[in-house]
Design a protein around this nucleic acid. Structure first.
Lengths: 156, 156
DNA sequence: TATTGTTATACTCTATAACTATA
DNA sequence: TATAGTTATAGAGTATAACAATA
């Protein structure tokens, strides 16, 4: 198999994964689109953080992340508390309502995945997850173009 | 590892793959967004086809596919020729200019992937591709909701 | 009446750039 | 002057629904 057709197949399956993602998104609660869902999930995983670090972890531009966070704050799922040390920064954290919404989402999504992937072994799922992580790793620092997110360290 | 955290990891890496896709899209020619790119690539792979089959193969709704095709037609990359047997249908095919554009795109994308994935073995790439295909297979018929694309057979 | 395809409309996502406020 | 974060704007993707033409 030529390199070209190997990479074309890879790309085609990247599109296929897009279709899977759309199916997952269709299964989300009506008031929580996928952007805010990612905020809740990442915040749960990371614990309270600043916006810039959150954006790093979500592999999105800060401006995009800010909008998703605003939505979550409006719904009462996330709380912004000012950082006394640097009054430009806010610490973002999940509220109890946010935790409940995240549970609801996890239940739905886990349910969907478990149903669809009932014939997968745990190993196989882990292998897929690991390979996707590695793929992303190969594109490190290729996330939002330029705009060095600088200081905020981070290295999943 | 619990099922919940296993599926949460999977979802997180699904987002990571989204970041990779965005990097690939940023590398595309300015006049050919990713939608039309998929049209060219799928048409090349399938040969001349009708819109409904093309939509099936692209895992998109017909209306979306129609718009991407229209863009490609306007650019002179794709040709619509009326089907004499059924005058509602059009046969879509790549023009020479479309083939050239596809080559240009493949060259760019293959170049990007080859560079980024230089430390991957062919096997590993194939394994990732196969696992993504299997994931999509697990979501079969879950593509655009309802609206049975009916008659147009198809089964990659 | 059913089917192929188009188009208008609406929503969401992402990125760029301009802007506010702190440091 | 540099940094944290917000917001306005623009461009692209996808889906729903209404519609035209043909079977």
């Amino acid at each position: 198999m030529s390199d070209r057709s190997r990479y074309e197949d890879l790309q085609r399956q990247l599109r296929a994964v897009g279709a899977v993602k759309r199916a997952i998104v269709r299964n989300l609660p009506h008031d929580c689109p996928v952007g805010p869902t990612a905020v809740l999930s990442t915040l749960h995983r990371q614990g309270p953080t600043h916006l810039s670090l959150l954006a790093d972890k979500m592999w999105l531009d800060i401006s995009v992340t800010s909008r998703h966070v605003s939505h979550a704050v409006e719904q009462g799922w996330v709380e912004r508390t000012q950082d006394p040390a640097d009054r430009r920064s806010w610490t973002l954290s999940l509220t109890p309502a946010g935790r409940r919404m995240l549970d609801e989402i996890s239940e739905r999504t886990t349910g969907l995945l478990a149903e669809r992937m009932s014939d997968w072994d745990d190993d196989e799922i882990d292998r897929l997850t690991a390979l996707m992580a590695r793929l992303h790793g190969s594109f490190a620092d290729c996330t939002p173009p330029d705009r060095e997110t600088a200081g905020t360290s981070a290295q999943a």
